[in-house]
């Protein structure tokens, strides 16, 4: 059970949060211009890394804010949390 440092509320129990999958998947600005393959790339394809991964998290039972997290999936170490729109911290 992680202890997550919500960028808005501070450290809270993982049970207050939900994970929203891979971060920095930008919704295409002009979906209609995309081929099926290109759209499928956005719609379906997600990395599932063993190691350092960028993830979206939502403080669902708290401030309801979405934010990003850098987590090592092999040992669950959380390296950083940062607000939406902020640049990911460089490794």
């Amino acid at each position: 059970m992680f202890l997550i440092n919500c960028p808005y509320c501070g450290e809270r129990d993982q049970s207050e949060f939900s994970c929203g999958g891979e971060a920095h998947m930008v919704r295409p600005k002009q979906p209609t211009e995309l081929s099926d393959d290109q759209w499928a790339e956005y719609l379906f394809m997600r990395k599932n890394i063993k190691g350092v991964q960028f993830e979206r998290w939502n403080h669902a039972h708290g401030c309801r804010k979405w934010f990003n997290m850098v987590r090592d999936t092999s040992n669950d170490k959380i390296h950083a949390v940062y607000k939406m729109g902020e640049k990911p911290p460089v490794e």
Binding site: R27, N58, R64, W66, M84, G85
Partner: peptide, 13 residues
Amino acid sequence: LSKLEDYLQTEWP
């Protein structure tokens, strides 16, 4: 609500 918030906060801030 959660889905709408998601779009609002992350895609269309």
